[in-house]
Design a protein around this nucleic acid. Structure first.
Length: 250
DNA sequence: TATCCGTCTAGCCACGCAAC
DNA sequence: GTTGCGTGGCTAGACGGATA
């Protein structure tokens, strides 16, 4: 019996499956790069944590792009918006986040300000990524939201209440866990990259365990894992197609 | 043979803890 | 409370070698 050769990304020595698994481990769980290195080593895969870091940078965004394409238009029409303070090299940043009524992460944007223009940027990004306006927008008491909403989506119902906006707050928890694990966030770029990739991975594996039977949960999880593998493989063909289009390959 | 992936090494930064 | 040291995290650049 002959084994099917493993798919590989152009010029990469490790199979696509291993690269996708490493990226998944790093983005799905609050693990450090060294933790991922150890977990892979335990399975007999010798790869350095620096390489895992490069895979996360290179492939994380490609996978995110594909996940976004698949999930576009599948979210609830109620947006919860919130912001969280992140300290990077002694400077204060604000992580602006939007989740839908089901807790799926719509988008996240790291900005140095907490004002109307920052709120405008978030809402513009959301409108572009979702391709639709929400029915209801729920925020905390920050007045920048109302000012931005009045300018961009004046017809949308706006509920401004601290208690109503817990969903956006819960979505910040993984970043706080990651922050603790890393001891701090090192750069704004690293932070933005992490929240972008993490949001999409979290959405894929957001299974509402509480409302499911164990069997249904296992089935949904298997389906999510399959989707992740499909994305890893289709990224292989996308890279190959892009190279062909540029005339690099024979 | 040129390209570029993966490893090695050094550097920077913040936290925790003990000693003072 | 302050200082110094060890630890653990990520980043960047140089380089060897695998790949196309």
């Amino acid at each position: 019996m002959t084994e099917e050769p493993l798919a590989r990304y152009h010029r990469h020595r490790f199979p696509a499956e291993i690269i996708a698994h490493a990226v998944w481990l790093y983005c799905r769980f609050p693990l450090s790069l060294r933790d991922v290195e150890d977990l892979l080593a335990e399975r007999g895969i010798a790869v350095s944590f620096q390489t895992v870091s490069k895979w996360v940078v290179k492939f994380g965004l490609k996978f995110t792009y594909q996940l976004r394409r698949r999930s576009r238009g599948n979210f609830a029409d109620k947006w919860h918006l919130g912001e969280l303070v992140v300290s990077i090299k002694g400077r204060k940043y604000w992580l602006w986040r939007a989740v839908d009524a089901e807790g799926f992460i719509l988008d996240a944007l790291l900005q140095s300000r907490r004002n109307k223009s920052a709120a405008l940027r978030l809402i513009r990004k959301l409108l572009k990524s979702q391709g639709a306006t929400p029915r209801v927008m729920v925020t905390d008491k920050l007045r920048s939201y109302a000012a931005a909403k009045a300018e961009l989506i004046p017809g949308v119902e706006h509920r401004s209440h601290k208690g109503l906006n817990n969903r956006a707050g819960y979505s910040h928890l993984p970043l706080r866990r990651r922050e603790r694990r890393m001891m701090r966030v090192k750069s704004a770029r690293q932070c933005q990259r992490f929240v972008s990739v993490h949001g999409q991975v979290a959405n894929l594996f957001h299974l509402h365990r509480k409302h499911l039977t164990a069997a249904d949960h296992r089935q949904l999880r298997a389906s999510a894992v399959n989707t992740w593998r499909e994305i890893a493989l289709s990224t292989c063909s996308e890279i190959r197609d892009a190279r062909l289009a540029r005339g690099y390959d024979p």
